[in-house]
């Protein structure tokens, strides 16, 4: 799983049916200290995450299928958690809402 920050929601009218009634988010990947890496991916939200939230992103197709309860969904990336804190050798890092926009 990866750590990321939700940057935007994506609205698409023409899309595969699996995305109906699900939120598709632009997630910028972050380091464990919440500094952004600049890389962006799209992920489907399963935990009611919002813009600026630091989240846990799963990237594995079979697990995504199991969580969504759908056979062969055309996606790998799911937001599966909202991060409260990360603790490392240097101590505990808590995401700050203020640095959510770069």
């Amino acid at each position: 799983m990866k750590i990321g920050c939700v940057r935007a929601t994506v609205t698409a009218t023409i899309k595969h049916p699996v995305y109906e009634a699900r939120s598709l988010m632009v997630v910028e990947l972050c380091n464990p200290d919440f500094t952004p890496t600049g890389a962006e991916i799209l992920a489907v939200d399963t935990v009611q995450a919002g813009i600026g939230d630091y989240v846990l992103v799963l990237k594995e197709g079979n697990s995504a299928a199991a969580i969504l309860g759908t056979k062969n969904p055309p996606l790998q990336e799911l937001i599966v958690g909202i991060i409260d804190s990360v603790s490392m050798h240097a101590g505990v890092t808590v995401p700050s809402q203020n640095d959510s926009d770069t």
């Binding site: 609205t11 698409a12 009218t13 023409i14 598709l24 197709g61 969904p73 055309p74 790998q76």
Partner: peptide
């Protein structure tokens, strides 16, 4: 990746990238 085929009618299509939606806007 492998999941690209699941956006097409035939889930065994040897594609590694599929356009699955047209973006209207970002918010």
């Amino acid at each position: 990746s492998r999941e690209a085929a699941f956006a097409l009618p035939d889930h065994a299509t040897p594609t590694d990238a599929t356009i699955a939606g047209i973006v209207e806007y970002l918010e």
